[in-house]
Amino acid sequence: DTVTLRMSAVQTPTDVRSVVIEEIFAPAIADFATYEPHYNGTLFRQGTELEAIARGNLEMSITSAQELSNYFPEWSMFTSGYLMRDGRHQINVFQSDIGEEMYQIVEDAMGIKLLTVIYLGQRHVNLRGDREVTTPEDLSGVILRMPDADSWQFLGRALGANPVPMAFGEVYTALQTGAIDGQDNPLPTVRDSRFYEVTDQIVLTSHLVDMNFLSISADVWNSFTPEQQDVMQQAAYDAAEEIYVRQSGLENELATYFESQGLRVYTPDVDAFRSHVQALYLDSQYAQDWPEGMVDRVNAVPGEE
């Protein structure tokens, strides 16, 4: 008899995260657990999954640093722009003692175990119109849709834009009509949601290495034998690695694809963006909650290079 692991996720069944977890994670644990995914936020609404796990109403979900920072101010560090350098750096950070410490905070307070970080891609600024963006000053007055949470809105302001929260489902129409000037997302999202149909340029700001976390109820986790826990942990790492490989491969192809669709794709003065954004974060109230010396420890972890 196996345990059923109900996973509540907001992404679609065809999303690379959904596909890879079903291909790699689910079969690896099939001997002792049945993986039962619910997509499109149909089981629990986006942003309510962690509470559902903590209250014993759900077994698994995919969460984000922004979501975690709603409960744990120290987690806001990972919502800040230009902290992670690339996907490899991100994986290394969370497989080090930094990840262990940060995961423990969540497990102790909410009974949720974070199995692994999942690479989502580099976020870039995707705009209508033909303005040339080199520095944060060039985004001044640009109405930029950012997801609806204070941490995202702060990132938008730090980039120099006028951020506005808007439901994801409204973004396409809002871009089409010019209600907003742009949005930020990794390139695969720009393709999947067809934002390239209604925008004119992609500024490769790489302002955030977007991340998700595969999470499971600690009660459920503790009900497994140590051997089963090892199998599940390895399955989670394997799935995360495959997602990273596929997602970064896709990002490399997409810049060319968007150019073939008539968009301008170019790199701004990233150093100017980095120093502007980092200075604003270190000055902000967020930084006061970050664990002492943690930024330096993150910087010391090796990345892709």
Binding site: E51, A54, R55, N70, Y71, M110, D148, A149, D150
Partner: peptide
């Protein structure tokens, strides 16, 4: 119990 539990979270703005 649920409503009381939600004290762990604050509104976004």
């Amino acid at each position: 119990d649920y409503v009381e539990f939600m004290s762990i979270r604050r509104s976004s703005s």
